[in-house]
Design a protein around this nucleic acid. Structure first.
Lengths: 308, 308
DNA sequence: TCCAGCATGTAGCGATCCTACACAATGAGC
DNA sequence: GCTCATTGTGTAGGATCGCTACATGCTGGA
């Protein structure tokens, strides 16, 4: 009889291309994965991995088995999810990835309520940029990813994932206090064409989005500085290094030498929770999304109406 | 992660209704099955079995899990079968059930050829009446069942099973040597209406078939004696106890005090091999069916043209 | 009331699986 | 061309798992 853990080991090798990559993902040693696959080879009577340079290559038989294994493992996840739904209560472990402003502006508060309302549910939060968390969720390394979707750039969802809308958030522009436009009530993005910009680091969705957005008003946007944390970006803005886009959700204290102005038209992002469709029926998923929505709803006035 | 062996244990309990029945089917002790299910309960966090009188009853959660498990286990079998097909050669173990005349008339010879042509295939034969072997094959306790199908009574195949035709066989009637019709070249069944009959035992398809067949010529057939083995039936015929239907396949030596006459019209049975559709792609299945057909074809003249 | 039948719990033994370590093979950098 | 980092496989030992045998508890019929 085939063993699901062994099938998972093989699919992990197929996914990551190397035995050690699979071992990392499964949190075991390479030796363990190697032995699991070797056992699978003995059981099936067929060679599954072949040495290929320093790595391995899957044989045709292994590719075939992986295709079956993916269907089987998906069905197993549906069964587990269905069984948990039958139980009705949110229990077990739920690993959630979120980007920084969502963690402090939404998830932290939600965790308090979740711990209170679902004491048997253990939510593990990890700060991961959506650029990473989406594929991780698709691969099953995460149960839920909290991601964003700017109004000028829709979210591309990998196969097998479902999303649930959480709330809207508005982003303003942060300018040095001595900027010519710093005393305006609001500003249009195109008025800032030619300005120097401060962005998130290049391995984040915010960087991709900012360059894309600025290109609509400025053929050659100048991104001179990059910092992943907004607090650092604001320090750079205060030092007169340029402008930055600053979401309202999870906003830190703005230094005195920085002015924050609303943009015209509003620059909005939508927040989504994303999960695998196989796990959709888990009460843990539903409960977490519900609480996230409730927390978000309580903050909507703050986010969309605050003068700045 | 769910474990397939544990799921199999639960489905066996669902199938057989009792823990000990499941244990028998899985060839382990009741304690082992009980522990497996208990572990499943801990993993899923839900009660699966409830004491019910001296036995157990499956909870709703267990019923739900069984439905999923059946789909998963079927998919696993397809994967294994597909993988073996990819390998191309017939290997591993194949458990085959056949009724007595098929064993000596067909399977024994086929085993010799199979052992020669597919040395890595181990075929295990067990004599089981089709009345038992069909459900056993459907439940996965057997890989193949060799069954018969009389020309006046088609075979009802349970869901999930496929069949392959092997050959035809003809049955004659055995009469005491001093029977008034014993010297005829052939005889019609209705000429024997009112005669006493010797049948297979009541727990066999042959008994069911014989009573059904005789009813078409005799409203109240007299079945005075029953013996599972034809050799015993012929001894009874020779002792003047009645008539018997005697297939040509695997026919033993006929005693001197018994005459065997062909029936008009021919009483034919068709032989089939039956297997689960999930295992249909196994080369072991295909190879065995092919050899059975070849052996049968070599005997067809003997079976259908022999004067008696 | 006793007993047969069924399920569960426990102790112990063997198998399994994982980690740590050693070793082999490859390919990139100097 | 040599060295070394990277990757995969093999082996020994310890922890865990899973099974059997046996004891115990419960139920329903004789």
């Amino acid at each position: 009889m085939l063993d699901l853990e062994r099938l998972r080991a093989l699919t992990a090798v197929a996914t990551y291309g190397t035995v050690s990559g699979a071992a990392d993902a499964l949190h075991v040693t390479t030796s363990a994965v190697s032995q699991q696959v070797a056992k699978l080879e003995r059981e099936t009577g067929q060679k599954l991995l072949e040495r290929n340079g320093r790595g391995v290559r899957l044989t045709d038989a292994a590719e075939l088995l992986v295709r079956h294994a993916e269907r089987i493992l998906a069905l197993v996840e549906v069964a587990q999810s269905d069984l948990e739904a039958h139980r009705g209560t949110a229990v077990g472990e739920l690993s959630v990835a979120a980007f920084p402003t969502a963690i402090r502006g939404l998830v932290a508060t939600a965790l308090v309520r979740l711990r209170h309302e679902h004491p048997r549910l253990r939510v593990k939060v990890c700060e991961v940029d959506p650029i990473e968390s989406l594929p991780q969720a698709a691969r099953g390394e995460l149960d839920m990813a909290i991601v964003q979707d700017w109004n000028n750039e829709p979210l591309a969802l990998p196969d097998g994932l479902a999303k649930g809308h959480l709330c809207e958030d508005v982003a303003d522009v942060a300018l040095p206090a001595d900027h010519p436009l710093a005393d305006r009530d609001s500003v249009e993005l195109k008025e800032l064409a030619g300005d120097s910009w401060i962005s998130s680091t290049a391995d984040s969705v915010c960087y991709d989005w900012l360059t894309h957005t600025l290109r609509s008003v400025d053929s050659e946007p100048r991104i001179d500085h990059m910092a992943y944390e907004y607090e650092s970006q604001l320090a750079l803005v205060g030092a007169g290094c340029g402008a930055a886009i600053l979401p309202r959700l999870g906003r830190c204290v703005v230094p005195d030498n920085v002015r924050v102005l609303p943009l015209r038209p509003l620059l909005e992002r939508r927040l989504f929770a994303v999960w695998r469709t196989e796990a959709a029926r888990r009460p843990a998923i539903r409960a977490t999304v519900d609480v996230l929505r409730a927390v978000a709803a309580a903050q909507v006035p703050d986010l969309t109406q605050r003068p700045t």
